[in-house]
Computed example of a mutant assay.
Amino acid sequence: MRYRTLGNSGAVVSTYALGTMTFGAEADTTTSHELIDAYVAAGGTFIDTADVYSFGRSEDIVGAWLAAHPAEREQLVLATKARFPMGPGPNDLGTSRRHLARALDASLRRLGTDQIDLYQLHAWDPVTPIDETLRFLDDAVRAGKIGYWGVSNFTGWQLTKAVHRAVALGFTPPATLQPQYNLLVREIESEIVPAALDAGLGLLPWSPLGGGWLTGKYLRDTDPTGATRLGEDPGRGMEAWIPRNELDRTWAIIDTVRAVATEVGASSAQVSLAWLEGQPGVTAVILGARTVAQLSENLGAASVVLSDAQVQRLTAVSAPVVSDYPYGDAAREQRGRQLPGGR
């Protein structure tokens, strides 16, 4: 296992984080605790959850494990999120001081801790003034309830606005961004990744295997069946996509991943994860799993070494399809500049 600083902070985390969205849903308490056991045994130090996962059940399960392992709690960096509905009322969601204050206290109680190392806004809130949210987060840092804060699912302009307003107001700035990012979904490289790099934020990619497509278990012209996420629920939300106009690109990516996996003696999932771990700005890749076997295989990505040529092949075949302006080659050339001597 490798380790990096948590974005622009001084905290250090393993480059693979344990995501807990399956806890209380696809994994019961016993299985969830076995997953944490296996993750910690492999050298993992970063656990990510959210209040909305199984409506608080995920945090309860993590909290119960932490209570039974007080020594390990000292070595773990704990992250959670808030923003989405936790009740039927109009104030039971969002990033207002009122909602976040209650959400943070509830998360602290469920997790059985007096401080959450990384507290994240689960998404932008168009209703709440950003200054109100930033002041609450700064107050929470000063009160010792959270160590650092970050955001998830923000666009480039939302991220930049949050960073610059925090700096302008003298508040604690964010440390991380948690976006969807994988070989099939690289659109964030146009605006969001540059914004994060400019602010010194660490990326915490979620859905690194594209809902299972990058594991190599799905075959061209064969409908998913059996004990797989899409086999059990073919209509499962956005993770069931492959846009019809991008089928050729998708299968080309999967085929290339499979070929590289054969070359290095690894699984397709491990190759996909190793590619993502090596991308600019990535602090930790968030691994979700339903079984210990799945998690153990994915953690094996930490020992996979890809050559520069293999990385280039994966990067080339997965290049996102974008219109020329303002993100295509011609537009990049318009914005580009080199000093004499090529530096």
Rank of each mutant, 00 (worst) to 15 (best):
V193L: 05
G265H: 02
P179R: 02
S207H: 00
M238T: 13
G235I: 01
G212H: 01
V322F: 02
V311W: 14
D105A: 10
I254G: 07
Y181T: 06
Y39W: 09
A175Y: 06
Y148Q: 08
R343F: 07
G144M: 10
G231W: 07
T250R: 04
Y148F: 12
Q178L: 02
D114L: 10
Q270I: 04
A82G: 13
S318C: 11
W213G: 03
V282G: 04
A175K: 05
V264M: 08
T133R: 05
T29R: 13
D114M: 10
G44D: 09
S207G: 00
V163Q: 06
L137K: 01
E297Q: 07
S303K: 09
P85H: 07
L108R: 09
V12E: 09
R220N: 01
P340W: 00
K81W: 13
D198A: 15
D105L: 07
M1G: 14
G288V: 05
T15G: 02
R313C: 12
Y16D: 03
W157L: 01
N245E: 15
H164E: 14
E74I: 12
R313V: 14
I47V: 15
W241L: 09
G150L: 08
T45L: 04
V151Q: 02
D248F: 03
T291Q: 14
A284I: 00
E132P: 01
T256P: 06
V304E: 06
D223C: 03
A162C: 10
E59K: 06
R290F: 09
A25E: 05
N153I: 02
L111W: 06
E59C: 10
A50P: 12
R102L: 08
A284W: 06
N245P: 14
Q294L: 11
Q75Y: 08
D324T: 08
V163S: 00
D105K: 11
P208E: 01
E263T: 12
D60S: 11
F84N: 00
R97P: 14
L134E: 12
G231M: 07
V321L: 15
L339I: 13
M238I: 12
E59P: 13
V151D: 05
H99I: 01
S107Q: 14
A166R: 00
P243G: 12
E232D: 08
M21T: 07
L247G: 07
Y327L: 05
Q270W: 11
F154L: 03
S267E: 03
V13Y: 11
A82C: 11
Q180H: 12
D329S: 09
L219K: 15
W251M: 03
V264E: 06
A25G: 05
A252N: 14
D117N: 13
P243T: 11
G19S: 03
R186N: 12
A101C: 09
R2H: 15
R98G: 05
R57C: 04
L204W: 03
G202N: 01
R102P: 04
Q75G: 11
T80D: 03
Q310Y: 03
S54L: 04
Q338P: 00
L339D: 14
P243M: 11
W157D: 11
K217H: 09
V12P: 07
T20Q: 04
D233H: 07
S152Q: 06
L111S: 05
A199F: 06
T283F: 01
I188T: 08
Y218N: 02
V317D: 07
S9A: 11
G226N: 08
M1C: 13
G336P: 09
R313P: 15
S207Y: 02
A17D: 03
N153E: 03
W124A: 03
S268Y: 00
S107A: 15
I188W: 09
